[in-house]
Every structure is written in C-alpha cells, then in structure tokens.
Design a protein around this nucleic acid. Structure first.
Lengths: 347, 347
DNA sequence: TGACCTTATGTTAGCGCTAACATAGCGTCA
DNA sequence: TGACGCTATGTTAGCGCTAACATAAGGTCA
C-alpha cells in the first residue's frame, strides 16, 4: 500500500526543540527513533507505513519516540529504497489566469488524499522549455506524467516513451497518444461553434486566440465547417496570451459579425473592445451586432453583461480523470470528456 | 553549484529503445553509462553536474554513452547522497479561479530556471488538511517552504520551525513570522477602501467574502476605519468561495450603498446581482447607487462594464519575492510589496 | 631537481530507508 | 507431540547517487 500521509501525519510533537540525541542540527532518522524505542529500525518503518503489522504496545512505544524526537519520515530515502516516489509530474503551459488551473486543482484533489505529491512545471508554450521541464520532471522519477497536450518535439515524446510510466495527455484527443488521454475534441468544438453561428445567420466570421496546437485544432474545425456551409473563409487573428490584447482586436476585424475566441478571457476582452465601439447590447444574442463565443466557461462569463456564450469543457473533470488514469492501469485509456456549447447572451 | 537541468538536459537520444545492457526494463544508471564509456561512475556524475572538471574528450565519450543509453539522471538518489533535493514546497489554499495562481506562476518562473522543482499542495482552507500537507511536503525534504498565510495550527508552526529550512509566509505580514515574509498589509487595505468610500459620501457599508485570516484582517481594517469616521458598524456577509454565491448577496444587504468584496470574483458576482436589481450603471463611480470595490485586480476587472475598482496586490511579485527569499539567505527577511487602490467605474 | 602546484580521474563509504528473507514464540489440531 | 500456520520482530543487503579523500601525470619554479 502507498504511504498515506493522512493516516500517519502529523504527529503532535512534545516540544519545539526535540531533546538532542545525535548532532545538534541533523534531523532524526528512523534508527534514532528505533534506538530510543528499543526496537529495530524496520519496526519503526512498519509503524509509519504498515502499522497493522506491529503489536499495539510496540507501536505505542515507537510513536512516543517519534513524537519526542519530532521525527519526520524521509521520503527521499524511502523512494530510493522502494523505487516508488509517490509523486506525479504535471506539466501545463501556464497556471496563472488560466483554464488549466481547474485541471491542476482536480488533479491534486484526487492525488493528494492518496499520498501522491504533485510536482508542477510550466512550459510557457515554449517547446525547448517543455523538453527541459520534462527531463527535469523525469529525473525526479515520478510515478506518472500528466501534461496538457502532447509533447511539442520528437525528443519530448522519446523522453516520455522511454520513461515507461503512465503518461496522460489532456485537453486533446491525439490520434496516436503515448499512453492515456483525458480530453475533448477541439476540432469538433470549432465545428460546433461554426454550425451555431452559421445557423444564426452570421456571415462574416473570425477566430481570435493563440496558435498553440489546441487553438489551432479549434480553428481548423471552425474554418472547415464554415467553408463547408458555403461561406467565405473566416479570418484568423493570432493574439498575445493576455486578454488585454484582444480588446483592440476589433479594430483589425472591422466588419465581422461573429467571433469565436479560443478562450473566455479573449472573448471577454474582445467584448470590451466591442463595447467601446458601441457594438455590444445587454439584450439576447439575436440583438448583438457581433456574436461572441468563448471557450472554457469561466465563472465570470455567467456574471458579466451580456452573459458569455461559450464552449464548456469540464477542466476539473479532465484533471480528476487524468489522475485516475495514472493510478489505475488497465481499462479504457482514452477518455473523451466532451464539451457543451452553452448559449447565453453574447452570441 | 546546483544541478542545472537547463544546461544538461535533455540529451537527444539515438533511438526509441536504447540497446539493452542490463535487465530489459531497468532504467540505465550512472554506472551503466560509466561502464559503456570506460570511466568510473564519479566521472559520469561530474559530466552531469560539473562538466568543467572533465576533459573534453572524456566528456564527449561519456555524453555519447548517455545518449546511446537514454540515460536520465536519478535525482532521488542524488538528493539522498547530497542532502539537497533542489525542490521547494508550495502550499496554497487553492489554485483554481484564484489570485494565488499568479503567485505560483511567479514562484515557479523564478525557481525553475535555477533547477528547483515546485511541489504543490492545496489546503483548501482546511487546517487539518494544511497540517497533513505540510507534513507530506516536509517528508520530501524540500529546500524551503513557501505558503500563503501562516500555519493555521500550533502544530503546523512547530513542524515548520523544526524543519530548519527557509519558510516564507506570503499574502500577509504576520507580526511574528516563522522566518521570511513577502506580502502586504491586509488591514491597511481594508482601511484604504473604507477611507475612500467614506470620502465618497457612502453611509451604509458592507463587507462580503470569506472568513479566512486574510479576509478577516481586511474586514478589521475596513470596520475600524468606518467606526473611526463616525459611521454605523458595517455589515459583514460571509460567503462561499465561489463568486456565484455573491450574486444573491445583495438580497441580504438590502439598503447598502457601498460594498468591499474580499476578492474580485466576489465583487464581480455582487455586481451581477446589482445589475439584475437595476442598481448598476455604466457610468462612473459617482453614478453608482452601490459602490463596489474588489481586491486582486484580475485582468477581467478592467474588461467588464462598469470597470471594477479594486485593491491591486501584485500576486506575481509576491511569488517572485518569495522565491528569492528562499534562495538567498541573509538580507531583509520581511518584504512588504504593498497594494494600490485602483479606482475605476464601480466605486 | 625536487617540492609544490594543477588537472583529470578514481576509490571508498555512506546518505536513510525498504525488500526480501530469516527467526522466534505461540496456539492449533489431528 | 510435532508439523504447521500465524504473528511479531529482526538481519542483511542494497537502492543510485555524491562527498571526501586519494592518486597519477604533467607543469612550474627557484
């Protein structure tokens, strides 16, 4: 059984500075506890990990010694000896102001109670940095890697495949995944938005957002569907990653009547631009001179006016599912969590 | 010198499945590389960590062997041997939809380039869980702990003090910190908001938000200043942590004319409630029947209408400063990053 | 020329734990 | 009664690295 911090820790300590046994500054070790309790160190190890194997009186004696010394198990040593680190590497493009925060939250809510730690790394949408972060993560020998998207380089893929641990790619459904997948079909999301806007009678459509692989898949679905319905090729505006850039995007798309933003932040920024251009109404979608659809379903979107229509994508469920996929081998390794087009007042 | 993943990794590998030397599934070790390169393992270790100490030709031979075997250093073993994990434990209440995400971002942007990994844990505003997470973090022997706020229990404080590593408390300025601090004065933030609203002529004020220590400090400053200026005791409404709860908050504060929300999400939620009650104007603060001030300065606040007045708190600077405080001993251990009252249209 | 650097590499021991395999004591049961 | 199983505890070896201390070869300098 995995080490369960919840069961064993924290032990209340008897004093701020434990009575010294060995050198003043060294943290007490298993064998210091063992000596004090008059048992062998393996017995202490069992009290920490497998308390049921130890007789109640022995256990009490050991626990008392741990308390008195302020013993904190050294999982670094434990991991080396057992070849289990009870940690999971998590790689996201970014965590701030971002839809991925929900996924990290879902992840750690699932992993932490089971005694797994999350080692977090950010690629900042930079392929070289992603490779470095993957290598750094792997050298800590995590039990699994969960990442947003797929590795950007061949090298990253090799690194992951050679690690021979569960790898979960998320927020996408790659055709040839390394191992497991928890995501949704970004292409279909683009199609769904296009279908909706075309059905609404919109004619001059545009896509705004980043040019990362997921945004590009959304764009592809969006464009293909629009072309298939006989309309002119939509425009695509590639923006910086902060929403503020999208405020001025409208000036560069003078006559559009519908915009699909790669995420809610961009959508809200774009709406701010529309507002100052006098092109935003508090009324329903049909009253909007320019329809706006986002992606992510931020809570904010429901609170602003007009309320934001968006593709809702269950970021926390992606995280929880990814965590489950790392813990349970076997079973379905490709989970499509889908998405929903949530129609509100913006488009 | 600390191990620098950026310098050494990743090594391009020559094939997907390295030619086997030992047992099929075991990851190659230092000594496997050493054998293949015809050197001792310490030389390989030096190529990884201190390449300048190795002659160029030897280094090339070792690097070739590493590439051929797909060697990934085992930092778990390295950490045990060197007593340096090159990791930092980070404890936040929550990461999703949250102002703390900026701090985590700032943190890891500073730590990752220096070869430190971030071990992330969430307390979910739960004292028992916080203690468990602290114990779990400490058992991984991080080089330092960075946390939002101060430990909620005596036990947590003991754990941290006994760890004898740098501890950085953030988002607050505790009077008796464990070690270092990077934050701002939440009490003064409350005072600043109260002063502003009173000067604006508001009479019936309220505070909405959580009841965590930082929100409570803001409330204290807010209330004290309002009482000091001779107005009636403000009301305090304790809300769930999601913004949606604050939408209906207005019904419970029927005749307020100014509200300070403990964070921007609550502020925006409250404004949504005002909007449906017909109490929100697109005009300037003076036109608002009910003034609303948030805290956090989310990008969103600038994009919505009316734009949100708020206390801006430099979450990323807090993170960067905290990271610096863990890396550099000595110097000032208490950094007040301050805050700014940013006045826009909401109040 | 030999004492003394400097550079490049190696040897040894051990970090703090756990896996795997003893061992010892006891009760059970035919 | 002794073979057997069960429970509680111990012994041994080693996980994969690095610190600390050799060692060897060549260069420098009075």
């Amino acid at each position: 059984m995995a080490w369960q911090p919840g069961i064993v820790h924290p032990l209340p300590m008897s004093s701020d500075l434990p009575p010294e046994i060995g050198p003043a500054d060294a943290a007490p070790t298993l064998s210091a506890v063992a000596k004090r309790a008059g048992v062998s160190s393996i017995t202490v190890s069992r009290v920490v990990r497998l308390p049921d194997l130890v007789a109640p009186e022995t256990r009490a004696r050991v626990e008392r010694a741990m308390r008195e010394l302020g013993y904190v198990p050294n999982l670094v040593a434990g991991a080396l000896a057992s070849a289990r680190t009870n940690s999971v590497g998590v790689l996201v493009p970014t965590i701030a102001n971002s839809i991925f925060a929900d996924t990290v939250q879902g992840l750690s809510d699932t992993l932490e109670p089971r005694g797994f730690s999350v080692i977090l790394a950010q690629s900042r949408y930079d392929a070289a940095r992603e490779d470095r972060m993957l290598a750094a993560l792997l050298s800590r020998r995590p039990e699994a890697i969960i990442m947003v998207g797929s590795p950007a380089t061949e090298e990253g893929g090799r690194l992951l495949r050679n690690a021979r641990i569960p790898i979960v790619e998320t927020w996408e459904l790659p055709p040839a995944p390394i191992d497991a997948v928890a995501g949704f079909d970004n292409y279909k999301a683009g199609v769904a938005v296009a279908k909706h806007l075309v059905a609404q009678g919109r004619k001059r459509l545009a896509f705004i957002g980043g040019d990362d692989p997921r945004a590009t898949r959304r764009w592809s679905g969006f464009r293909d569907e629009i072309l298939a319905s006989g309309l002119a090729e939509p425009r695509r505006l590639i923006l910086e990653r902060n929403a503020t850039g999208s405020v001025v995007a409208h000036a560069r798309l003078p006559d559009v009547d519908a915009v699909f933003a790669a995420n809610d932040a961009h959508a809200i920024g774009f709406m701010a631009g529309l507002r100052s251009a006098g092109l935003l109404r508090d009324g329903p979608a049909s009253a909007q001179p320019v329809a706006v659809i986002g992606l992510g379903d931020l809570e904010m979107g429901r609170l602003i006016s007009p309320t934001l229509s968006t593709i809702s994508v269950h970021g926390d469920a992606i995280g929880r599912t990814a965590a489950t996929l790392t813990l349970e081998r076997g079973g379905e390794r490709r989970v499509d969590l889908g998405f929903e087009l949530v129609l509100r007042d913006s488009g």
